[in-house]
């Protein structure tokens, strides 16, 4: 009999403690962020999709070596390049040299797993993570990024 009543009493007591906690929480400030109205700043190391890095002249640093393409586990990077001749002054004389110039750098973000292998494998520091996270669309094509185009838009 004693155990019967003591269990009821302890039960009610535990319920009262629980209600006390939610009562206190009720008066504490709200912790959420009203997302579309307020946004958070992403941390410095946040990994968004990749973005081409430009040099001082506003051109992509990329030399089109294709390391990122090879390192990518999901094959979401495709790039193309062409050779262009250019002239350099060397020891007083002009020489023509060839170099690869990036003509296309497409990222298929639908399959990207944001592992960072491409950025890690780039020996030239030519790609970096963007801080963009407001990416939502019902169309697949919206996630096929032309990174060269985006670089131009950023500069203009």
């Amino acid at each position: 009999m004693g155990a019967y009543f003591s269990e009821i009493f302890r039960g009610l007591q535990s319920l009262a403690i629980g209600m006390g906690i939610t009562f206190r929480e009720f008066f504490k400030p709200v912790v959420t962020v009203s997302y579309p109205m307020e946004t958070l700043k992403m941390s410095a190391r946040y990994r968004g999709h990749i973005e081409l890095v430009e040099d001082e002249k506003g051109q992509p640093k990329c030399v089109a070596c294709g390391m990122c393409q090879r390192a990518c586990p999901s094959g979401c990077i495709s790039l193309a390049s062409e050779s262009v001749e250019y002239e350099v002054e060397e020891k007083g004389e002009t020489k023509t040299k060839k170099k690869k110039v990036l003509t296309k750098y497409n990222l298929n973000f639908t399959t990207c797993s944001l592992c960072g292998q491409c950025v890690e494998n780039c020996s030239f520091g030519a790609i970096d993570f963007s801080k963009e996270y407001n990416l939502a669309s019902s169309r697949k094509e919206d996630f096929h990024f032309d990174l060269l185009q985006r670089l131009k838009e950023r500069n203009s």
Partner: peptide, 13 residues
Amino acid sequence: RGAGRIQRRPGPN
């Protein structure tokens, strides 16, 4: 609204 405040979120606003 009440549930929201208990859970420290604003609720429908």
